[in-house]
Design a protein around this nucleic acid. Structure first.
Lengths: 353, 353
DNA sequence: CTGCGCGATGGAAACGATACCACAGCTGCT
DNA sequence: AGCAGCTGTGGTATCGTTTCCATCGCGCAG
């Protein structure tokens, strides 16, 4: 038990170094305007005592806390995990700490998270709202009195800046790609339609399908593996079975792939498959799966950067900054083998936006 | 700009409610020993002002901060992301906030993280040390003067409790399984041997192989896809090509699988494959991949629980608690098709530990 | 009738760091 | 010589909350 009972304070350092607290404070914060000799002495005292500034006291005194909050549905979701990682990198360059809380897409948990983070005096907030039209959340955020940036999903009817991928364009392009291959009965398996991103993707799909004069075939009911398998089974048994499946979400893509394998559906010869969101193994499975890839890291990075940009002293006052506040990033179609492209491109292309 | 310039304070609430600060404080902390009428009045004032306690001030006043730190290599790594998620759930049940920092397995970043978290006065720390024998880290943690729990990797030569999977037993069992299938030239592709977990797995493999009187064939050089493909290419071209490959890490398993596919190696008929760590698609690819699965969530959960157990008031004094402090959790062999098991078991078995 | 105990409440001193202000000593200009 | 201006320094109020201690009624036993 070599545990020390108490952390040394600034004034203990001051006493040990034989100087005033002000001087020690100066040394800690850059050491300007301090005599080199004094500086060295204080530094030595700090070292000897193993002194570390108490953040709570600093924060209490006011001003910047060097802490920002990130509110996401889940850490275990690779998409948000990558966003978090990217945001943390940016936070670190701004000498700030990122605190992540999770909501599992529950509005109550979101509001709770905002409250918790505000109590911890975070300088700003990045949030991926479950419901893009949640007035309760808007209110809480308005009270928060700190800059907020929305991530992956916008917060509508508010002036909150957002960073997200162009889901409409991504799905639109993917659908066009399938149409280009000659598929005519393209089914869309969606997942939870309460999410803004999914709805946008549906719109993108629908627009492409309908402007080709074809019927949109949308199944919003699928959730887990059994439901996906069942849905595909039913579709295949119908009088006009699909010739392509477009899945709007990672887990559904994987489930659909597995179900098609199990049901003995030849991909893409019998039915093609194209998924929204890339994943590591999409390239490894046989056939490899064509997907729409979002610039995940970029989303996390930009959200954080916009937040810090708003945190710059003075930026609050001059309301009209020249920088863009609402960012929609482009997506790429990563062509692999599940869509009927014979020779998969090794270098991804087909940018949009 | 409906932004409020300033958050209301406790004394403003007190003034509004016409009571003293002490009373408001009591109301916030449970409201015992307060007249029901006063209580209601204060509650109303709190509501009206949208008051939220300032954590910084609370923390400064001393005692518990209701905040714990988690230091992991990466948030984007699914293993640690799941640990973090599990730990966060436990933290929430203890009414605490979890702050995650990442190190990318760099010792300097670890020490920096500990310092940052200590400055934020976290009540305790959970850490996955890159190097299990890092004396600098041990020193910093000793100074930290708060309970610490090691996760996934122990911190040797210290009394710090740890929670991890039994890597030796897991690899040992996996190797035995391959031996049981009749494979005799089992190659082990490791990944970075600086990690405790990898070293343990190597030992488990070696022990099983050598007690079968066979030579351990270990390639520690592989890192990314090209190196894995190259390694497999060389192995196959040798005079005595392997009949099974045991990969000690997720990314290497995936790389090996892809390389084998590309090189036209029949799995498992020509060469079997068994990987350490399960992943979502291991079950979806063809052939599905047999793996050793670790109880990831359980690791995160238990680490957090042990930490909070040590945080219980008084537990610091009675040093000899009856609870176990060093936990090694069992792993399971998930039998699929890449190892030669003809009929894959749908219900995983073969527990060990 | 007095004092004791108890429930309800408020005053004010911390907690540790910051920053405003003051001031000492020195330079160099008029 | 006098004074402005600069550098290096310290005293001290302050941030918002908790908590120790004091106070104040008030019913009730002695």
């Amino acid at each position: 038990m070599t545990k020390k009972t108490k952390a040394p304070t600034l004034s203990e350092v001051a006493r040990k170094a034989g100087v005033g607290t002000t001087t020690v404070s100066r040394v800690i914060n850059g050491g300007n305007r301090v005599d080199p000799k004094t500086l060295a002495r204080v530094r030595r005292a700090i070292e000897a005592l193993g002194y570390m500034p108490n953040q709570a006291a600093r924060i209490l005194k006011g001003h910047r806390t060097k802490t920002i909050g990130l509110i996401i549905p889940s850490i275990a979701d690779p998409f948000f995990a990558s966003c978090a990682e990217a945001a943390q990198v940016i936070a670190r360059t701004h000498d700030s700490l990122l605190i992540v809380t999770t909501t599992h897409n529950e509005p109550d948990a979101e509001i709770e998270s905002v409250k918790v983070l505000m109590q911890h005096q975070t300088d700003g907030l990045i949030i991926a709202p479950a419901d893009s039209d949640n007035s309760a959340l808007r209110n809480v955020l308005a009270r928060a009195a700190v800059p907020v940036v929305a991530l992956d999903r916008p917060l509508l009817h508010s002036s909150i800046p957002f960073v997200l991928a162009d889901n409409f364009a991504g799905a639109n392009l993917a659908t066009q790609h399938l149409l280009g291959h000659g598929y005519r009965r393209i089914v869309c398996l969606t997942g939870e339609t309460s999410l803004y991103t999914i709805r946008e993707r549906i719109s993108g799909y629908r627009q492409a399908i309908e402007s080709a004069g074809l019927p949109a075939i949308i199944d919003t009911s699928v959730t887990d593996y059994p439901s996906v398998e069942q849905a595909i089974r039913v579709l295949l048994a119908s009088s006009q079975p699909p010739d392509a499946i477009f899945t709007l979400k990672n887990s559904i893509t994987i489930n659909a792939f597995e179900a098609m394998l199990k049901l003995g559906v030849a991909i893409p010869d019998s039915v093609a498959l194209l998924g929204y969101d890339d994943f590591e193994l999409a390239d490894t499975v046989r056939p490899s799966i064509t997907v729409v890839r979002q610039p995940i890291d970029e989303i996390g990075r930009m959200a954080a950067e916009i937040l810090f940009q708003q945190l710059r002293p003075g930026s609050r006052t001059r309301a009209d900054d020249d920088r863009p506040r609402q960012v929609q990033l482009g997506t790429r179609l990563i062509r692999r083998n599940s869509c009927g492209c014979t020779a998969p491109q090794l270098t991804p292309q087909a940018q949009n936006a």
